[in-house]
Design a protein around this nucleic acid. Structure first.
Lengths: 144, 144
DNA sequence: GGAACTTTAATGCAGTTGCATCTATATTGG
DNA sequence: CCAATATAGATGCAACTGCATTAAAGTTCC
């Protein structure tokens, strides 16, 4: 197939960009059909749910989600407004705040997961064997 | 690792989303450092260069790039303004137009490729063997 | 202790994207 | 031929993103 190493890398790059866009579009479309918010909301809710009572500082959530600072600041604002998360003052650092998921947030995440899980199955699960999926994960993780 | 097939698919999905974002950010950063436009411009230029004298109808370019119609309409507008492509009337269909790359467009694509190629090597080539890269491409293509 | 610097988070502004709609031309069916 | 429908592409508006900057609090080093 690819004649040399570099060409193989270029092929992989192109395949990566395409596959991600196609798969992402499929999954986002399912969420939208169901009248649910987009994946970045899900990701934030999930990180905050995992963080539990302790909550998460915005900068920690930024790192987890690979979000830009200003981007997360505004996402948090919108999600607060929607009642899905809460901002609490941070006692140790008065510049900061701690984000917590609300009961509504937990409920929404659960509803989203039902759709999301199904969509991942359609976009990935149906197209790969278990072994292929594991190989794929392993190779992709080498890129990060 | 993953206990069942679905879990393996979910792992692969997460790894795909992360790897693509990380790799894409690295490559885009290289282009920006070099004062060059973003990848969507490159992709459009490359498709039009491959199309040669015949050019491409906007809807064909949309499909090739997985762009939304309005998105491509505006990309074409900006690239025209920048002198990189030309819009010509389409003789067979007076609703339509045909997009052509200009000499400046070809020159820019070439300059971008020098940086882009190097960036792909950094983001993908350095991290995988040739065989791994080919395996990765193969698995990713099964998703599209 | 205090000046210089760093970190946390917000925000004004401009550029980009998504959604819905619109215009113009082409095609189809009676 | 004409009405109904479909397709190609553009655009107004709202939401989102990136960039640069700002404000406020923390840290460092003398």
């Amino acid at each position: 197939m690819a004649e040399d190493k570099h060409e193989a890398a270029v092929d992989a790059w192109i395949a990566l960009a395409r596959a991600q866009r196609v798969a992402m579009a499929r999954v986002e479309a399912r969420l939208k059909e169901a009248g649910l918010p987009s994946l970045s909301w899900y990701d934030a809710l999930w990180e905050l749910e995992k963080a539990g009572e302790a909550g998460l500082r915005p900068y920690a959530l930024e790192e987890a989600l690979l979000f830009e600072q200003y981007n997360l600041s505004r996402l948090a604002e919108r999600m607060c407004k929607a009642g899905l998360i809460e901002r609490r003052a941070c006692p140790e650092d008065r510049r900061g705040q701690i984000l917590h998921i609300s009961a509504e947030g937990r409920a929404l995440r659960q509803r989203m997961w039902a759709v999301y899980e199904q969509a991942i199955e359609e976009a990935v699960g149906c197209r790969l064997t278990a072994e292929e999926a594991e190989t794929l994960s392993g190779l992709l993780k080498k890129l990060t």
